[in-house]
Design a protein around this nucleic acid. Structure first.
Lengths: 330, 330
DNA sequence: CCTCCCGTTGCACACGTGTTCAATTTGCAC
DNA sequence: GTGCAAATTGAACACGTGTGCAACGGGAGG
């Protein structure tokens, strides 16, 4: 006994019409008479018929309505929230989300993208890692939209969606300077992503220009533990009166090191500003002053880039906003 | 100018062989002579040929190597981590992950599952929501593996993967009783998921049997804010000396309410135990004693269920473990 | 040299759908 | 009733692939 799935021909046979009629019934805007449509729908329901999207896509010239999403560390709060909203938006738009999770941000994501090619996806969204140039060319050749979120800057063949890192760094710097901070730690991970580097560099530039002193840290993955380690290493220097952590995850770790290991009071002894506004930033134990990115703007930008046909690349900037909570001295 | 994607016939033509030879070259275990294989590979590389998985699947009788994953609240720490490991494991096994994100845990997930049917997925993993019985039957009829994680208990046609909620509740109860707690809050969300209900019911049973008193709370979504609200509402009663929150997210909120709003010391004034061991549970500000589920066991169970052919349903139990940190009085 | 067997190859079919094109029917005005 | 346009319908093709089947070729054993 072979469990065969029902065909459009099966439906056609039962309804007593041609297979074309069945196809047209399920194709919006096609020309079918109401009575035929009803017969077809009845037969389809009886047999439990469902269109085979794979065959549908195969037929349609060009690509499917699949969107490949490449990421790493899906479990981290900020990425998780991005993915949550993004997949929701895609689904809402009638697009399906093929998730390719990289084991590690450092992993070469080229094989994953090539896998997406094999599925004839309509677009590819890259949340982590940096696709090599060969991939960029291949995307262009195949007519696949490539959308990079906070990735390489000099890629000219992909749609770029960039957080306003410079604006955010400025907000953070001004807030800490206004609080009277003069010697400020700048905490980044060792991953060296362009986004983090831009934030750190711009922050240092502004603070130094204002006569402040900055102290860099860059090591480890982008994690709570790294923030903790940074705090342990840097906070021995009691002359530090401020810290800018380029990620909230780093900031929470740094803050915990200050309070629970180094015996410092926040914000009385040291002021801290983060970046991203992850959910935990608003938890009472942290109450972290941070730079929020508009998730809505980010999602909208991705969705519009997916739809946006044409060869002109789009560069969207996600606006940022200072969220004042309670980790900067008044 | 039409941007056509390269065919296997294109490759065949360039290599001077038949299309079958191309297909066989990319089919492991097929019979091709080394010289033909090399010619084909050379031509394929030159043209940038990639197998079209959609056509591949269409041909192959039966289903694809897609696995549909249905979830909600992908952004929440516990779900996010589940999804992270799961998608990683699936990818590692050569399976692709089609992510369908529900807007809300209460949303009817039947349409999402039906969408997965249309893609002829090999299996469906349900992380949130409860599929109606009609879906169960349809899965069986279509020969699609249905895997439910911590969902309905009485479903007999699906593979079930269940956390050892009862064992976890027992560990929590024993820990709190051993700490001398006599009047214990039991905090659940208002979502009424079977998993949460089992944990709460078993906990109450054990504590009551030991002569302890329990105080229930069940309202709101499963979130930090709900835990906060529960703490505000319950902790006015100063005779409370313990709390079991069926989710770490609830526990963190509850703990913050105790410390930052009700002026209580944890664990001196009240002992708290959570469930899930989300990453934040180990953050220094919480140091939450909690019941950990083995993520590896969960992932393994899902992967084995996907592969496991045959009509017999599998029921896997994910073991739990008490993680002692610092929210229970010694 | 003949026979048998095995590895390789190409042809043709099947998978399930959307769509063009011509044929047919319907509707309508005269 | 008749002519014409519009709406509907069905047959046939295309999409890109894997594979059964038969044909072919070569080497080993007799």
């Amino acid at each position: 006994m072979t469990k065969r799935v029902v065909n459009s021909s099966d439906v056609a046979k039962l309804a007593g019409v041609s297979r074309s009629a069945v196809s047209r019934t399920f194709t919006p805007g096609a020309s079918v008479s109401p009575e035929v449509r009803e017969k077809v729908l009845k037969a389809a329901k009886k047999l439990g018929y469902r269109v085979n999207r794979l065959a549908q896509t195969l037929n349609a010239r060009g690509s499917s309505n699949l969107v490949g999403v490449v990421g790493a560390n899906i479990g981290m709060p900020f990425i998780a929230k991005q993915l949550d909203l993004l997949s929701l938006g895609l689904l809402h738009k009638g697009l399906q989300c093929l998730l390719l999770n990289a084991a590690d941000a450092r992993q070469d994501i080229a094989p994953l993208i090539e896998l997406i090619f094999e599925f004839r996806a309509k677009a590819i969204v890259v949340l982590s890692g940096e696709p090599p140039n060969a991939i960029l060319e291949e995307c262009k050749r195949r007519g696949v939209k490539l959308i990079l979120i906070n990735r390489m800057m000099e890629a000219t063949d992909a749609d770029l969606i960039l957080t306003d890192d410079l604006g955010g760094a400025r907000l953070a710097a001004e807030e800490l300077l206004a609080a009277g901070c003069r010697k400020i730690a700048v905490v980044t991970s060792g991953s060296g992503t362009p986004s983090q580097q831009r934030r750190a560099a711009e922050f240092c530039r502004i603070v130094n220009a204002a006569g402040g002193e900055t102290l860099d840290w860059a090591d480890g993955p982008t994690s709570y533990e790294t923030g903790l380690a940074a705090g342990r290493a840097l906070l021995g220097d009691r002359s530090l009166d401020g810290a800018f952590c380029v990620t909230d995850l780093l900031a929470t770790g740094f803050l915990d090191a200050a309070r629970h290991e180094m015996g410092l009071r926040v914000p009385e002894d040291i002021s801290i500003v983060g970046f991203d506004d992850i959910p935990q930033a608003s938890w009472k134990s942290y109450n972290l002053t941070t730079i929020a990115q508009s998730f809505d703007a980010l999602t909208d930008a991705v969705l519009s880039a997916v739809d946006h046909e044409g060869d002109i690349v789009e560069v969207s900037t996600i606006p940022v906003q200072l969220i004042r909570r309670n980790t900067v001295r008044a």
